[in-house]
Amino acid sequence: MIKDEYYDAGLALRRAMFGPSGAEDQVEHTTDLNDKIQEVVTRYCFGDVWQRDGLDLRVRSLITLAMLVATGRSHEIRIHLRGAVANGVTAEEIRELMLHSFLYCGIPAAMDGFRAADEILSASASPAPAEESTHV
């Protein structure tokens, strides 16, 4: 695995968007089977493309969500909803994106997006259990 400034920047962005479980936990638990894809995701996706000038992280998150809804990637929608919230996308913007998606992607795709959004936004609005709320 190539670890350079792109890798470090990508890992930092993954951490900011998805927390340790989407950053260190992912790359530290690679295998010979998936180590190259983790490098590609960390270095190229998040260390390079996501950090280019021209679009801020909030806009990139909205675009990513729209493409994931369009391609029916429910698992990735849930992951990127968390990242979108971390990047400042509001619940209202997510609702409008999901509603708008039915025009171009169809009702089933929009409904998958709405289900994922409801799950993630409901979970993020719930207070943390007492034992977790003391962690910083």
Rank of each mutant, 00 (worst) to 15 (best):
I2S: 12
I2F: 12
D4F: 03
E5V: 07
Y6L: 07
Y7F: 15
D8Y: 10
D8I: 11
D8C: 09
A9L: 08
G10K: 03
L11W: 05
L13H: 03
R15N: 09
M17I: 06
G19W: 04
P20L: 13
S21V: 07
G22L: 04
E24F: 13
V27R: 01
V27P: 00
H29M: 05
T31L: 02
D32H: 04
L33T: 03
Q38D: 10
E39K: 05
E39G: 12
E39W: 09
E39V: 02
R43Y: 03
Y44R: 09
Y44T: 10
C45A: 15
D48N: 14
W50C: 02
W50K: 00
W50N: 01
Q51K: 15
R52C: 11
D53F: 08
G54A: 04
L55M: 12
L55Q: 08
L55P: 07
D56I: 11
R58A: 11
V59D: 15
S61I: 00
S61F: 07
S61Q: 06
T64G: 01
L65N: 14
A66G: 14
A66E: 06
M67R: 01
L68M: 09
V69E: 02
A70H: 10
A70N: 13
G72S: 05
G72I: 01
R73K: 14
H75I: 00
R78L: 08
I79Y: 10
H80S: 08
L81D: 06
G83P: 04
G83H: 04
G83T: 02
A84W: 07
T90F: 03
A91D: 12
E92A: 14
E92D: 13
E93V: 01
E93I: 04
I94K: 12
E96R: 11
E96D: 10
E96H: 10
L97G: 01
H100F: 06
S101L: 02
Y104S: 06
Y104A: 04
Y104T: 03
C105Y: 01
G106Y: 06
I107H: 06
A110V: 04
D112T: 14
D112Q: 13
G113P: 02
G113R: 05
G113Y: 01
F114D: 00
F114G: 02
R115S: 14
R115N: 14
R115I: 11
A116G: 03
D118N: 14
E119H: 04
E119Y: 09
I120Q: 08
S122W: 09
S124G: 07
S124P: 00
S124E: 09
A125Q: 10
P127E: 12
P127F: 00
P127G: 05
A128L: 15
A128W: 11
P129R: 10
E131A: 12
E131C: 04
E132I: 11
S133W: 12
T134N: 06
T134P: 00
H135W: 12
V136H: 15
